[in-house]
Design a protein around this nucleic acid. Structure first.
Length: 1038
RNA sequence: GGGCCUAUAGCUCAGUUGGUUAGAGCGCGCGCCUGAUAAGCGCGAGGUCAGUGGUUCAACUCCACUUAGGCCCA
């Protein structure tokens, strides 16, 4: 206790020591053990991929995931925190495919799915060591040992259980989804992948005429850049509200959007036969361009439908629609019951359905198709079109959008449950609930959960392709029972060969694996192998009390958790969620490894410390969903403005406690300063608790800075002398007891935010009967008896008065060191005068005046004028407000005085009615009188009597002398308790100051002998224009 | 293209149910203070509250549109 404190603190070094200490005493485990039998606060951790290194976003989310559980732990809750790893999915497969040089699905299958999957398993946890290093260094306490991994057998079995629940509820169905597809690799890509590879290309752009069935020689014009999709055309789409025109072109009539006529007929405007709205075209039938799917007319093909996506920006305003090859097309077709065809094989070659082009790669058929249409007179216009088009990120082939057989979760059926669940969630920031997330839920489409990939949790479906009989397996036991086999691993390569005997014959596995979001969304159940084990556990651990992730998870983890929670239990899966914004580089752009536009996180933590980084992030709006332009300077600033002052306050206490050999007591002092800082302290604790209870981290974090400022720059500064007294009198002991109590409480309150420095300080302040770590303490409660808003108000008024007095001194160019006779404080408010009176000693001392004169009559020092109180009068007066404001501005000082004495006043508003006003309807403004320098703020006005007599001048000199000697002490790096001998030479003019204030000077500077000499070999110092020399020698340590 | 968020001093951000001198910190300049401090205090300069229009007696605040940035979805 009270080991010597190094003022030259190196935070990162201290933090390393703390990390070692935590390891040594197993602090995290202990923090859990001591709460073992208490109420739980349930936290779910979202799993990251371990195939990349952690970045600032992870550190930020990790910090938030640390603060709240630490707070709740100190609050007495048991907060289990297990880490999780997202192991499956495309990111892993990409990484591996690149390493192995496998560029397509066929190459992977050639390589062998078993080998490939095992290789994936091998690299999945590649960076976990680095992750643990980062997580540990930022100070996050989380259980890695019992962490869940989505590729574990138990986890996957729970996923199957989740899937089976949905299956049994009839929420799973097979359908088609239009996906970008690489013809070279014969694989669908995610939209995310497609977005990676946009390139500018030139495609054919043709305008084609579709003959209307029931109108002779009338043709609909449609425009397309993918001629090869025309054989699969099954509809034409128009916009309901767009005007379409029939134009005469030679012997025939074309239909197109009116807005596009000028483009197609640039030289001369054709004759317009008639104009109709898009909705009037609805359901009109047309002749297919090609004969391949003619028989589909009976099922609703070859007619006009409408959709919102149609524009008149390009083309004809009539959109060629092939539901098998476009997302918009598929959706519009679905709405109107248009069938869908996709007559191409895995390599995107036409199948036999399109007999003329069978076996040829679709894009290679473009020109033949165009030529054929031209020969048949169906081609109206041809050109080329430059546009940005997605390409495969691996092989650079242009992608083809095509229907892929996909399994879906029917969101429509459970939307009500999802909305109900969302209604019960507390979002930080609040707006996400109804905004971003709520909107997303309202418009959510069915969720495509299958992937044509290898490394993932397999769909537990077996099917007879001929009869359609399908079985959903709900557990490994179920599978073993049905097959008689034994399965230690249910990854694709183990169960693909498995055949299940169905009622209609053998069933083979449906080859797809699950979307990894389905897997992470199953985390609340799968992390504990529910319901195969821990059956009761879930009752107490669902929903979570708290989760925290980035804004990008709105459509990710937050969404999938809610879908599954709503579908399975009709409940929200979490009750509180903190959504953090994105961390950008200092220039406001994305952080980019390539551009290196941000500092390495480890470097930041090694330079300023993890506490500084944590507090910097926590006090930024990034913890409520806004972006943070991260800057190293910001972290440094946090260190300087919060951590250093805290450390210095701590160092101050320890330094003097050592000098006096002081031991902690629990005294509750009555000294006004002590009562004030305790009031501030409890006010702080109350605010922090309120903030943390509602997961408002930023408001909480920023409160510490103001408190620490109050503590160091007012409480300690004002109390310094109390610590210097040579006797251990009661006032000194009060000061010690108070500062000790304040610091100890403060580090406990701050511990969840800055776990390192608080631990270091706590360890050196704790008595032997206290817990060995600050993180094993209880979170401070508000001591109601210490709250004192009245006193806080008094001190605020006092500090205002002091500030005003300082301003006057600086205006008059009179240093605070030079004492003045009187400060005049004026306020018309009796309660304000009382406030100032209570603490007037502080004002006198701060302003270095002999007397404080508190007066009521402001008019002695200022001229008063009045201004309308808009807030009060506005609602009452409405339109007459302006006239009243003018009248009020013109009130005389007598009228103002009369109002202030409680009288009412009648204003004659020209032309309008009269208005009776009271003092509450005006605001008093104060202006300095010409001959009286004053300063004013609010209800307080200050004036200073600047006349200095001989005594005051001499006393000022004495203080100058003390100041000079103190500076010499400091330059000589003397200890605060070293005694000194001073010899000085001085001109006679200044000598009386030394003689008259001899005791004062010696006392202030711990000087044992003060001797005047003619010649002194010391530094020359300017003292009010006179040259003085001092020789300062250390005589002894105290 | 759609949804949501953001835009206030050179920088980072506050700004109550709309109410009349728009605040703080950092940085800059001047002054002051200093047996804890890498500090602190006072003052000063620095603002078309992104832009346009509207509602209102009154708009940083409410509404519409526009511009720029961010996230997500197309």
């Amino acid at each position: 206790m009270f080991e010597k404190v190094d003022t030259n603190v190196n935070f990162p070094k201290e933090e390393e020591k703390v990390l070692a200490f935590w390891d040594e005493i197993r602090a995290f485990e202990k923090s859990l053990e001591i709460r073992k039998n208490n109420d739980e606060y349930v936290f779910y951790d979202g799993p990251p991929f371990a195939t990349g290194l952690p970045h600032y976003g992870h550190l930020l989310a990790g910090t938030i995931k640390d603060v709240i559980p630490r707070y709740q732990t100190m609050n007495g809750k048991y907060v289990d925190r297990v880490f999780g790893w997202d192991c499956h999915g495309l990111p892993v497969e990409y990484e591996l495919s690149q390493e192995l040089g496998l560029n397509s699905k066929s190459e992977i299958e050639e390589y062998g799915i078993a080998e490939y999957n095992e290789a994936c398993r091998g690299i999945v946890l590649r960076y976990t060591a680095e992750w643990r290093q980062f997580v540990k260094r930022i100070g996050r306490w989380v259980d890695f040992e019992n962490g869940y991994r989505t590729m574990d057998r138990d986890y996957m079995e729970s996923i199957w259980w989740v899937f089976k629940q949905l299956w049994d509820k009839g929420l799973i169905y097979e359908g088609h989804k239009i996906l970008p597809y690489c013809p070279q690799d014969a694989t669908p890509l995610s939209n995310f992948e497609a977005n990676q590879g946009y390139e500018s290309v030139q495609d054919p752009a043709i305008t084609v005429a579709f003959k209307l069935k029931d109108e002779p020689d009338a043709y609909l014009l449609a425009w397309t850049t993918t001629p090869w999709t025309l054989p699969s055309n099954l509809a034409l789409t128009v916009h309901e509200d767009v005007d379409y025109v029939y134009v005469k072109d030679g012997d025939v009539t074309y239909v197109l959007a009116e807005a596009r006529v000028d483009t197609y007929y640039p030289s001369s405007r054709p004759e317009i036969v008639k104009t109709i709205k898009g909705k009037d075209l609805l359901d009109m039938q047309y002749e297919p361009l090609f004969p391949y799917f003619e028989d589909l007319r009976a099922q609703g093909a070859f007619r006009i439908i409408t959709a919102e996506f149609v524009t008149t920006e390009e083309g004809t305003g009539i959109v060629h629609t092939a539901p098998g090859f476009g997302e918009d097309d598929a959706e519009a077709g679905r709405v109107y019951g248009v069938p869908s065809v996709c007559p191409i094989d895995a390599e995107c070659r036409f199948t036999s359905e399109v007999r003329d082009y069978e076996g040829r790669f679709v894009k290679d058929c473009d020109s033949d198709i165009v030529n054929r249409l031209k020969e048949e007179g169906k081609l109206v216009h041809r050109s080329t079109h430059h546009h940005s088009y997605p390409h495969c990120w691996r092989c650079e082939s242009p992608l083809i959008y095509r229907a892929i057989s996909t399994w879906f979760v029917n969101i429509e059926k459970i939307k009500d449950q999802m909305l109900r669940a969302n209604a019960q969630i507390h979002w930080v920031p609040e707006h996400i609930k109804a905004g971003r997330f709520g909107n997303w839920l309202e418009n959510a489409r069915d969720w495509a959960i299958s992937r044509n990939r290898y490394w993932g949790c397999p769909l537990p479906l077996w099917r007879n392709e001929e009869t359609g009989e399908t079985v959903c397996v709900g557990s490994i036991g179920d599978l073993e029972e049905r097959t008689g086999g034994k399965f230690d691993d249910i990854h694709k390569h183990f169960i693909d060969p498995v055949i299940i005997e169905g009622e209609t014959g053998p069933l083979t596995r449906v080859p797809e694996v699950l979307d990894c979001w389905f897997e992470s969304g199953s985390m609340p159940y799968a992390q504990r192998h529910y319901p195969f084990e821990n059956k009761d556990w879930l009752d107490a651990h669902f929903p979570a009390d708290f989760i925290a992730e980035g804004l990008d998870q709105t459509r990710g983890w937050f969404y999938t958790l809610v879908v599954l929670g709503a579908a399975l239990f009709d409940r929200p899966p979490f009750e509180n969620v903190v959504v953090n914004g994105m961390i950008l580089a200092e220039d406001g752009r994305k952080m980019s490894k390539r551009l290196k536009n941000y500092p390495d996180p480890m470097h930041v933590m090694d330079t300023y410390g993890a506490d500084a980084l944590r507090l910097n992030m926590l006090s930024s709006p990034v913890v409520r969903g806004e972006d943070l332009a991260f800057s190293e300077q910001g972290v440094q600033k946090t260190m300087r403005s919060v951590l250093l002052p805290l450390w210095n306050a701590y160092s101050f206490l320890v330094t003097y406690a050592r000098v006096d050999n002081w031991q902690p007591t629990s005294e509750r002092s009555d000294h006004p300063l002590d009562r004030w800082i305790r009031a501030r302290l409890n006010h702080l604790v109350r605010d922090i608790r309120q903030g943390l209870d509602r997961c408002h981290l930023q408001t909480a974090a920023t409160r510490f800075a103001t408190f620490i400022d109050d503590m160091t720059n007012w409480y300690i500064r004002r109390s310094r002398r109390r610590f210097w007294k040579s006797d251990n009198d009661s006032d000194k002991l009060s000061a010690y007891a108070t500062l000790y109590h304040v610091l100890l409480t403060l580090v406990k309150a701050l511990a969840p935010f800055a776990p390192f420095i608080t631990e270091t300080i706590y360890r050196n302040l704790r008595a032997s009967d206290m817990p060995e770590s600050v993180h094993l303490c209880d979170y401070p409660d508000v001591i109601e008896a210490d709250l004192d808003e009245k006193l806080e108000q008094q001190m605020a008024h006092t500090r205002t008065a002091v500030g005003l007095g300082r301003f006057l001194r600086s205006q008059a160019n009179v240093r605070t060191r030079h004492p003045l006779r009187t400060a005049i404080l004026v306020s018309m408010q009796e309660d304000v005068r009382e406030d100032l009176r209570v603490l007037q000693d502080i004002i006198a001392d701060e302003l270095n005046v002999k007397d404080v004169d508190i007066r009521a009559n402001e008019e002695e020092v200022v001229t008063l004028s009045a201004k309308a109180n808009f807030r009060v009068l506005g609602p009452r007066l409405g339109k007459n407000m302006k006239a009243a404001a003018e009248k009020i501005a013109g009130l005389s000082s007598e009228e103002i005085r009369s109002l202030r004495q409680g009288h009412t006043h009648i204003l004659d508003l020209d032309g309008a009615e009269c208005l009776e006003i009271t003092v509450d309807d005006i605001l008093i403004q104060r202006e300095e009188k010409e001959d009286m320098p004053v300063a004013n703020e609010g209800d307080i006005t200050v004036a200073l009597d600047l006349y200095r007599d001989e005594d005051l001048v001499r006393e000022g000199l004495a203080r100058e002398i003390v100041h000079v000697i103190q500076n010499i002490r400091r330059d000589k790096e003397l200890d605060v308790s070293d005694r000194i001998a001073v010899t000085y030479s001085v001109p006679d003019e200044v000598a009386p100051a030394f003689d008259q204030f001899r005791d004062y000077i010696m006392g202030e500077t711990l000087c044992t002998t003060l001797v005047r000499a003619d010649e002194v070999e010391g530094d020359a110092v300017d003292l009010e224009g006179q040259v003085v020399r001092f020789l300062v020698e250390k005589t002894s340590a105290s």
